[in-house]
Protein backbone atom coordinates (compact mmCIF):
# COMPACT_ATOMS: atom_id res chain seq x y z
CA UNK A 1 0.00 0.00 0.00
CA UNK A 2 2.75 2.40 0.94
CA UNK A 3 4.53 1.58 -2.23
CA UNK A 4 1.41 2.35 -4.17
CA UNK A 5 1.19 5.85 -2.74
CA UNK A 6 4.90 6.29 -3.20
CA UNK A 7 4.48 5.63 -6.90
CA UNK A 8 1.30 7.65 -7.09
CA UNK A 9 3.12 10.66 -5.69
CA UNK A 10 6.07 10.20 -8.02
CA UNK A 11 3.95 9.79 -11.10
CA UNK A 12 1.71 12.75 -10.31
CA UNK A 13 4.80 14.89 -9.86
CA UNK A 14 6.06 13.69 -13.21
CA UNK A 15 2.70 14.52 -14.71
CA UNK A 16 2.87 18.06 -13.33
CA UNK A 17 6.32 18.45 -14.78
CA UNK A 18 5.06 17.34 -18.19
CA UNK A 19 1.85 19.36 -18.17
CA UNK A 20 3.35 22.52 -19.68
CA UNK A 21 4.40 20.45 -22.69
CA UNK A 22 0.88 19.10 -23.10
CA UNK A 23 -0.47 22.61 -22.75
CA UNK A 24 1.97 23.89 -25.34
CA UNK A 25 1.05 21.21 -27.86
CA UNK A 26 -2.65 21.93 -27.37
CA UNK A 27 -2.12 25.68 -27.63
CA UNK A 28 -0.70 25.33 -31.11
CA UNK A 29 -3.95 23.81 -32.36
CA UNK A 30 -6.24 26.46 -30.89
CA UNK A 31 -7.73 29.21 -32.96
CA UNK A 32 -7.52 32.83 -31.89
CA UNK A 33 -10.99 32.73 -30.36
CA UNK A 34 -10.29 29.58 -28.38
CA UNK A 35 -6.85 30.44 -27.13
CA UNK A 36 -7.91 31.80 -23.77
CA UNK A 37 -11.35 30.24 -23.74
CA UNK A 38 -10.12 26.66 -23.32
CA UNK A 39 -7.39 25.54 -20.96
CA UNK A 40 -6.18 22.78 -23.25
CA UNK A 41 -8.36 22.08 -26.29
CA UNK A 42 -12.07 22.03 -27.01
CA UNK A 43 -12.05 18.23 -26.73
CA UNK A 44 -15.63 17.62 -27.70
CA UNK A 45 -15.46 19.84 -30.78
CA UNK A 46 -12.61 18.51 -32.90
CA UNK A 47 -13.92 20.70 -35.68
CA UNK A 48 -12.49 23.71 -33.86
CA UNK A 49 -8.95 22.36 -33.85
CA UNK A 50 -6.88 24.07 -36.45
CA UNK A 51 -3.56 23.92 -38.23
CA UNK A 52 -3.80 27.55 -39.24
CA UNK A 53 -1.18 28.60 -36.67
CA UNK A 54 1.46 26.51 -38.39
CA UNK A 55 0.41 27.69 -41.81
CA UNK A 56 0.52 31.31 -40.67
CA UNK A 57 3.90 30.77 -39.05
CA UNK A 58 5.51 29.67 -42.29
CA UNK A 59 3.66 32.03 -44.59
CA UNK A 60 3.71 35.23 -42.61
CA UNK A 61 7.07 34.92 -40.88
CA UNK A 62 10.43 33.79 -42.28
CA UNK A 63 10.27 30.91 -39.81
CA UNK A 64 11.85 28.35 -42.13
CA UNK A 65 14.77 30.70 -42.56
CA UNK A 66 15.15 31.13 -38.80
CA UNK A 67 15.16 27.36 -38.44
CA UNK A 68 17.91 27.00 -41.02
CA UNK A 69 19.92 29.79 -39.42
CA UNK A 70 19.60 28.20 -36.01
CA UNK A 71 20.67 24.80 -37.25
CA UNK A 72 23.62 26.30 -39.08
CA UNK A 73 24.90 28.45 -36.24
CA UNK A 74 24.42 25.82 -33.54
CA UNK A 75 25.91 22.94 -35.53
CA UNK A 76 28.88 24.89 -36.84
CA UNK A 77 29.72 26.22 -33.43
CA UNK A 78 29.38 22.82 -31.79
CA UNK A 79 31.56 21.08 -34.35
CA UNK A 80 34.27 23.69 -34.00
CA UNK A 81 34.21 23.85 -30.24
CA UNK A 82 34.30 20.06 -29.80
CA UNK A 83 37.16 19.68 -32.25
CA UNK A 84 39.24 22.49 -30.85
CA UNK A 85 38.60 21.58 -27.23
CA UNK A 86 39.51 17.96 -27.71
CA UNK A 87 42.68 18.89 -29.58
CA UNK A 88 43.80 21.36 -26.97
CA UNK A 89 42.70 19.11 -24.14
CA UNK A 90 44.75 16.30 -25.62
CA UNK A 91 47.82 18.51 -25.88
CA UNK A 92 47.45 19.73 -22.32
CA UNK A 93 46.90 16.25 -20.93
CA UNK A 94 49.57 14.31 -22.76
CA UNK A 95 52.40 16.67 -23.66
CA UNK A 96 54.85 18.85 -21.89
CA UNK A 97 55.55 22.09 -23.67
CA UNK A 98 56.67 25.59 -22.96
CA UNK A 99 54.13 28.06 -21.52
CA UNK A 100 51.84 25.19 -20.57
CA UNK A 101 51.76 26.25 -16.92
CA UNK A 102 51.13 29.91 -17.66
CA UNK A 103 48.49 29.02 -20.23
CA UNK A 104 46.69 26.90 -17.67
CA UNK A 105 46.79 29.71 -15.15
CA UNK A 106 45.41 32.27 -17.59
CA UNK A 107 42.68 29.86 -18.59
CA UNK A 108 41.76 29.14 -15.00
CA UNK A 109 41.44 32.80 -14.12
CA UNK A 110 39.05 33.41 -17.01
CA UNK A 111 36.89 30.44 -16.02
CA UNK A 112 34.96 32.29 -13.37
CA UNK A 113 34.54 35.52 -15.30
CA UNK A 114 31.01 35.90 -16.65
CA UNK A 115 31.03 36.53 -20.37
CA UNK A 116 28.56 39.41 -20.01
CA UNK A 117 31.36 41.70 -18.95
CA UNK A 118 32.75 41.44 -22.48
CA UNK A 119 29.51 42.24 -24.26
CA UNK A 120 30.17 45.96 -24.73
CA UNK A 121 33.81 45.61 -25.77
CA UNK A 122 32.96 42.70 -28.06
CA UNK A 123 30.22 44.74 -29.68
CA UNK A 124 32.68 47.55 -30.34
CA UNK A 125 35.11 45.02 -31.78
CA UNK A 126 32.46 43.59 -34.08
CA UNK A 127 31.63 47.08 -35.29
CA UNK A 128 35.27 47.61 -36.11
CA UNK A 129 35.53 44.27 -37.87
CA UNK A 130 32.32 44.95 -39.74
CA UNK A 131 30.86 41.76 -38.32
CA UNK A 132 27.57 43.19 -37.12
CA UNK A 133 24.92 40.98 -38.65
CA UNK A 134 27.38 38.23 -39.49
CA UNK A 135 27.38 34.69 -38.16
CA UNK A 136 31.16 34.74 -37.73
CA UNK A 137 30.61 37.12 -34.83
CA UNK A 138 28.58 34.41 -33.11
CA UNK A 139 30.38 31.24 -34.13
CA UNK A 140 34.01 32.20 -33.60
CA UNK A 141 33.80 33.67 -30.09
CA UNK A 142 31.60 30.72 -29.19
CA UNK A 143 34.36 28.35 -30.25
CA UNK A 144 36.38 29.31 -27.18
CA UNK A 145 35.42 27.09 -24.29
CA UNK A 146 37.82 26.92 -21.41
CA UNK A 147 35.40 24.68 -19.61
CA UNK A 148 35.38 22.25 -22.52
CA UNK A 149 39.14 22.08 -22.61
CA UNK A 150 39.38 21.26 -18.96
CA UNK A 151 36.74 18.61 -19.41
CA UNK A 152 38.69 16.99 -22.23
CA UNK A 153 41.97 17.40 -20.39
CA UNK A 154 40.62 15.48 -17.40
CA UNK A 155 39.22 12.75 -19.62
CA UNK A 156 42.33 12.41 -21.77
CA UNK A 157 44.56 11.98 -18.75
CA UNK A 158 43.06 8.51 -18.54
CA UNK A 159 44.42 7.55 -21.93
CA UNK A 160 47.25 5.09 -21.15
CA UNK A 161 50.68 6.35 -22.20
CA UNK A 162 51.63 2.84 -23.33
CA UNK A 163 48.96 2.97 -26.02
CA UNK A 164 50.35 6.24 -27.36
CA UNK A 165 53.85 4.80 -27.30
CA UNK A 166 52.72 1.74 -29.16
CA UNK A 167 51.06 4.00 -31.69
CA UNK A 168 54.21 5.98 -32.21
CA UNK A 169 56.21 2.81 -32.71
CA UNK A 170 53.70 1.78 -35.34
CA UNK A 171 54.38 5.03 -37.17
CA UNK A 172 51.32 7.04 -36.27
CA UNK A 173 51.64 10.78 -36.50
CA UNK A 174 50.75 12.77 -33.39
CA UNK A 175 47.58 13.90 -35.09
CA UNK A 176 46.58 10.30 -35.72
CA UNK A 177 47.28 9.45 -32.10
CA UNK A 178 44.68 12.03 -31.14
CA UNK A 179 42.23 10.85 -33.73
CA UNK A 180 42.54 7.09 -33.48
CA UNK A 181 43.63 6.44 -29.94
CA UNK A 182 42.61 9.31 -27.67
CA UNK A 183 39.23 10.20 -29.12
CA UNK A 184 37.67 6.71 -29.02
CA UNK A 185 38.57 6.43 -25.35
CA UNK A 186 36.79 9.66 -24.38
CA UNK A 187 33.84 8.97 -26.68
CA UNK A 188 31.08 8.96 -23.99
CA UNK A 189 32.21 12.35 -22.76
CA UNK A 190 32.14 13.75 -26.28
CA UNK A 191 28.49 12.77 -26.56
CA UNK A 192 27.49 14.61 -23.42
CA UNK A 193 29.59 17.63 -24.19
CA UNK A 194 28.20 17.81 -27.72
CA UNK A 195 24.62 17.79 -26.52
CA UNK A 196 25.25 20.34 -23.77
CA UNK A 197 26.97 22.61 -26.21
CA UNK A 198 24.34 22.24 -28.87
CA UNK A 199 21.63 23.06 -26.36
CA UNK A 200 23.46 26.14 -25.14
CA UNK A 201 23.98 27.38 -28.69
CA UNK A 202 20.46 26.58 -29.78
CA UNK A 203 19.03 28.60 -26.91
CA UNK A 204 21.58 31.36 -26.89
CA UNK A 205 19.92 34.74 -26.94
CA UNK A 206 21.79 37.66 -25.43
CA UNK A 207 24.77 37.89 -27.79
CA UNK A 208 22.93 36.99 -31.02
CA UNK A 209 20.29 39.56 -30.07
CA UNK A 210 23.04 42.18 -30.07
CA UNK A 211 24.67 40.99 -33.27
CA UNK A 212 21.81 39.94 -35.53
CA UNK A 213 19.89 42.96 -36.71
CA UNK A 214 18.22 41.72 -39.84
CA UNK A 215 15.02 39.74 -39.61
CA UNK A 216 16.19 37.32 -42.26
CA UNK A 217 19.27 36.50 -40.23
CA UNK A 218 17.52 35.89 -36.91
CA UNK A 219 17.89 32.63 -35.08
CA UNK A 220 14.82 31.09 -33.47
CA UNK A 221 14.99 32.62 -29.98
CA UNK A 222 15.42 36.09 -31.45
CA UNK A 223 12.73 35.68 -34.04
CA UNK A 224 10.21 34.38 -31.54
CA UNK A 225 10.81 36.99 -28.87
CA UNK A 226 10.37 39.64 -31.48
CA UNK A 227 6.96 38.17 -32.27
CA UNK A 228 5.95 39.01 -28.74
CA UNK A 229 5.58 42.69 -28.38
CA UNK A 230 4.20 45.42 -26.22
CA UNK A 231 0.65 44.95 -24.97
CA UNK A 232 -0.51 47.71 -27.27
CA UNK A 233 0.16 45.65 -30.35
CA UNK A 234 -1.09 42.38 -31.66
CA UNK A 235 0.45 39.23 -30.30
CA UNK A 236 -0.35 36.19 -32.45
CA UNK A 237 -0.65 33.81 -29.50
CA UNK A 238 -1.26 30.51 -31.27
CA UNK A 239 1.39 31.20 -33.89
CA UNK A 240 3.90 32.09 -31.21
CA UNK A 241 3.20 28.80 -29.45
CA UNK A 242 3.54 26.84 -32.69
CA UNK A 243 6.91 28.47 -33.25
CA UNK A 244 7.98 27.69 -29.70
CA UNK A 245 7.02 24.04 -30.05
CA UNK A 246 8.93 23.68 -33.30
CA UNK A 247 11.94 25.34 -31.68
CA UNK A 248 12.00 22.93 -28.78
CA UNK A 249 11.50 19.83 -30.89
CA UNK A 250 15.00 19.48 -32.42
CA UNK A 251 16.64 19.46 -28.99
CA UNK A 252 14.18 16.88 -27.71
CA UNK A 253 14.83 14.66 -30.70
CA UNK A 254 18.56 14.98 -30.27
CA UNK A 255 18.21 14.11 -26.61
CA UNK A 256 16.22 10.98 -27.40
CA UNK A 257 18.87 9.79 -29.82
CA UNK A 258 21.74 10.41 -27.42
CA UNK A 259 20.07 9.84 -24.08
CA UNK A 260 22.31 7.02 -22.87
CA UNK A 261 25.56 8.66 -23.90
CA UNK A 262 24.44 11.91 -22.50
CA UNK A 263 23.51 10.83 -19.01
CA UNK A 264 26.58 8.65 -18.64
CA UNK A 265 28.87 11.42 -19.82
CA UNK A 266 27.18 14.09 -17.76
CA UNK A 267 27.52 12.07 -14.60
CA UNK A 268 31.15 11.13 -15.10
CA UNK A 269 32.09 14.70 -15.91
CA UNK A 270 30.40 16.10 -12.85
CA UNK A 271 31.66 13.60 -10.34
CA UNK A 272 35.21 14.26 -11.39
CA UNK A 273 34.88 17.99 -11.91
Amino acid sequence: MRRFFYHLALFSLALISLTPFAWLVCATFKSKDDFFAYTFLPWNQPGRWTLSNYRFLFQHYPFAGWLINSVFVSCAQTVIVVTLSSLAGFALAKYEFRFKKSLLIVMLTTMLIPYQVMLPSMQLMMYRLGWINSYAAIILPGAVSVFGIFLFMQAMKLVPDELLHAGRVDGCSEFRLWWEIALPIVRPMIGAYTLLNFMANWNSFLWPQIILQNERKYTLPIGLTNMMSLPEFQTPYGVLMAGTLLSILPVVILFFIMQRDFIAGLASGAVKG
Binding site: L13, A14, L15, S17, L18, P20, F21, M199, W202, N203, F205, P221, L224, T225, T244, S247, I248, V251, V252, F255
Partner: peptide, 12 residues
Protein backbone atom coordinates in the same frame (compact mmCIF):
# COMPACT_ATOMS: atom_id res chain seq x y z
CA UNK B 1 9.73 13.30 -17.28
CA UNK B 2 11.64 15.29 -14.70
CA UNK B 3 14.60 16.03 -16.89
CA UNK B 4 12.78 16.92 -20.09
CA UNK B 5 11.96 20.48 -19.05
CA UNK B 6 15.67 21.19 -18.98
CA UNK B 7 15.73 20.70 -22.75
CA UNK B 8 13.67 23.84 -23.18
CA UNK B 9 15.76 26.97 -23.42
CA UNK B 10 15.30 29.95 -21.13
CA UNK B 11 13.77 32.08 -23.85
CA UNK B 12 11.18 29.48 -24.75
Amino acid sequence: AFFSSHLVGNVF
